[in-house]
Design a protein around this nucleic acid. Structure first.
Length: 451
RNA sequence: GACCCUAUCGUCCAGCGGUUAGGACAACGGAUUUUCAUUCCGUGAACCCGGGUUCGAUUCCCGGUAGGGUCGCCA
């Protein structure tokens, strides 16, 4: 008998926020589906009408797509088990509730809510990550001898409770493996009882460790870096964030860390997931992002930078692709976050670029800076436009400095600030070479006047 | 409080009966560099505690402690 194909799901509640923990759960589900050739299903758990909005659902789609997590069934895709919004599955739940009613396994409490008559047995879970876990549901939860209350499955107003609809949908959608956060481990016995009462075989469970904040507490909305949107806004490369998330609780066991998704897919196994909660290390995520940015192709870098530059209002449309590529290549090795690219490149696209006050004060207003800039402009004037390249410029700077009997830096620093308004940037000779002779001379002379 | 999970450098991840306990981020020091960044080299830094089991425990078992989680008409 061949094992049934894997079907896993990510079932977020649309709260207007995609938590990195949720994203990591989605990622592990997706990886498992891709590794096994199974299906990854997206189901929106929007039973809480008050909180759920279309915008909030969009946040989930955007975050998953940004991370490259495509779903095989779900909103926008369809599938045989739809609808994939719990708010549209009322008939299904009514149907399943009827099964429980027919079996006498539910009752109405004094407030009119429907409760499941829990059998309270010893539940043994063979968790794929946590191992064997036994919970005796017949034991009192306090010294008074109280048992855990029977789970509510439907409110008096007819709306449904998470535990019930979650279990029902997993049955209905043929979910084979439930991969979710460890915060659900304690809920699982309840889910198994419900599942069995419904006449179904429970899925396999894999409870993955939680992501904690830097101080060791549960990562909450307020914590820095808790929202996927933040990484999008700050200009992280999605492949870097996805890679980092893989490393939280999972590893290939050979000390490698920078892995592309294809490799992770082929190596991903549930038994390689550890059981220990992990603190999110923003420094390391930042570092890994830098690695990705520096090593990615110029094409990829351009694709990531263009929307950022456009949003920042840089008139990149007025320049050739060739020019754009030269500019981007000059900063690619320097920049770590995409959001920094506009500030690093603005002066390549406009003459109306900002001057860093500190740099001006320190370099341009230094004694003799104006004279140096005038000398430099006069010297560079002699370079033929067709010879205006980094190597020639470097030679020119060095000759000028040698003749003047000073270090090259004496000319370099004011030239950098004059041409770019900044004290930091790409290699100066390359920068001037990309900018072109005409612009450079204008800027050097303008700065000399102001110096 | 009850129940469940966890416990290796500050952080993440290896090691799972015998190791000089390894790698990465961060920190610190140095080299390279026209700025910044990169890169390179180096240093410091860990097996929670107590009992077992064993010739031998970081590794296995028990207890403690600590951290996290769950006990909702939130999901």
């Amino acid at each position: 008998m061949s094992p049934s194909p894997v079907r896993v799901r990510f079932a977020p509640s649309p709260t207007g926020f995609l938590h990195v923990g949720g994203a990591r759960t989605a990622l592990f589900n997706w990886l498992y589906a891709r590794h096994t050739g199974g299906k990854f299903i997206l189901r929106i758990e929007d039973t809480d009408k008050a909180r759920n909005t279309v915008e909030a659902v969009q946040v989930i789609y955007d975050g998953l797509k940004w991370l490259g997590l495509d779903w095989d069934e779900g909103p926008g895709i369809g599938g045989d088990c739809g609808p994939y919004f719990q708010s549209e599955r009322d008939a299904v739940y009514v149907n399943y509730l009827a099964k429980l009613e027919a079996a006498g396994k539910v009752y109405l409490d004094e407030k009119g809510a429907t409760r499941f008559k829990a059998p309270r047995q010893l539940i043994v879970m063979e968790d794929l990550v946590c191992g064997r876990v036994e919970v005796d549901r017949s034991k009192p939860i306090n010294p008074l001898g109280d048992l855990e209350p029977d789970p509510t499955i439907r409110r008096p107003d007819g709306s449904w409770i998470f535990h019930f609809v979650n279990v029902v949908d997993d049955i209905e959608m043929g979910i084979t493996h439930v991969i979710r956060g460890e915060d659900h481990l304690s809920n699982t016995p309840k889910h198994i009882e419900l599942c069995q009462a419904l006449g179904a075989t429970p899925p396999k469970y894999a409870h993955i460790p939680l992501i904690l904040n830097r101080s060791g507490g549960k990562m909450s909305k307020r914590d820095q870096g808790a929202s996927v949107q933040q990484y999008i806004d700050e200009g992280y490369a999605p492949e870097a964030v996805a890679n980092y998330l893989c490393l939280l609780g999972w590893s290939p066991k050979d000390n490698r860390e920078k892995l592309d998704m294809g490799e992770v897919i082929s190596l991903f196994e549930l038994d390689k997931i550890n059981r220990r909660n992990a603190a999110f290390d923003t420094d390391k995520c930042f570092w890994l992002n830098g690695q990705y940015v520096h090593e990615m192709s110029l094409e990829r870098f351009r694709a990531l930078c263009m929307p950022v530059m456009e949003r920042a209002g840089l008139p990149i449309g007025g320049f050739t692709n060739d020019y754009l590529d030269h500019v981007l290549a000059s900063v690619k090795e320097k920049v770590k976050l995409l959001k920094d690219v506009p500030a690093w490149t603005a002066y390549f696209f406009t003459d109306d670029f900002p001057f860093d006050e500190e740099a001006v004060a320190k370099t341009l207003r230094a004694a003799g800076a104006g004279e140096r800039l005038r000398q430099l402009a006069a010297h560079l004037e002699n370079i033929a436009p067709e010879s205006w390249d980094a190597a020639t410029l470097e030679g020119a700077f060095k000759t000028l400095a040698a003749d003047a009997g000073v270090k090259t830096a004496v000319f370099i620093h004011p030239a950098r600030v004059a041409a770019s308004g900044r004290s930091v940037g790409p290699s100066l000779y390359h920068m001037l070479s990309i900018l072109g002779k005409e612009k450079v001379l204008v800027r050097l002379r303008a700065a000399a006047e102001k110096a």
